[in-house]
Amino acid sequence: MKINAEKIQKEGKSTVKDFFQVLIMVSLFSWLIGWRSVVPTSSLEPTIQAGDHIIISKLNYGAITPATPLQLPLIHGYGLDWISLPTFRLPGFSEVEKGDIVGFFYPPEDMPVDLKTIYLKRCVATPGDTIQIKNADVYINGQLMFDDVETQHQFEVFTENGLSKKKLEQLDLYHYDHNNDKTYPSGQRNFIVHISEQKAEVIRKDPHIKKVKSIVSREADFYPATRVPKKGDIVKLTPKNRQLYLPIILKYEDNNAKFVEGKVFIDGKEIKEYEVQQDYFFMMGDNRHNSLDSRFWGFVPEDHIYGKGTIVLFNLKEFDSSRMFKSL
Results as ranks from 00 to 15, higher is better:
71 Q>T: 10
135 N>H: 09
310 T>Q: 05
40 P>L: 00
103 G>K: 02
175 H>D: 10
71 Q>H: 01
174 Y>I: 00
103 G>Q: 09
29 F>R: 00
140 I>V: 15
184 Y>R: 08
159 T>K: 00
94 S>P: 03
206 D>T: 05
301 P>R: 03
168 L>G: 10
222 F>N: 15
306 Y>K: 04
251 K>H: 12
311 I>L: 15
93 F>A: 11
235 V>S: 02
261 E>K: 12
208 H>N: 08
93 F>T: 05
311 I>K: 08
166 K>Y: 09
230 K>G: 13
196 S>I: 05
308 K>V: 02
128 G>F: 07
66 P>Y: 06
39 V>A: 06
139 Y>M: 03
266 I>N: 04
196 S>K: 05
29 F>T: 01
279 D>I: 10
220 A>W: 09
164 S>P: 04
171 L>I: 06
293 D>R: 06
152 Q>P: 00
213 K>N: 09
176 Y>F: 14
313 L>C: 01
133 I>M: 10
172 D>Y: 14
250 L>A: 13
167 K>T: 13
121 K>V: 00
315 N>P: 05
273 E>M: 07
324 M>L: 10
225 A>W: 04
289 H>A: 03
21 Q>C: 07
33 I>D: 00
199 K>F: 05
134 K>I: 12
294 S>T: 06
209 I>S: 02
13 K>N: 11
248 I>V: 15
223 Y>N: 06
27 S>R: 08
113 V>E: 13
300 V>Q: 09
26 V>N: 02
35 W>F: 14
92 G>F: 11
43 S>Y: 00
184 Y>M: 07
260 V>C: 01
260 V>I: 15
109 E>P: 10
74 L>Q: 06
32 L>A: 14
163 L>V: 09
277 Q>I: 06
144 L>W: 02
304 H>S: 14
24 I>Q: 03
258 K>S: 13
192 I>S: 14
305 I>Q: 05
208 H>M: 08
267 D>L: 07
202 V>E: 15
88 F>P: 01
101 I>P: 09
328 L>T: 00
127 P>A: 05
93 F>S: 08
115 L>V: 03
57 S>D: 13
328 L>E: 00
92 G>P: 12
58 K>Y: 08
89 R>A: 08
89 R>T: 12
164 S>L: 08
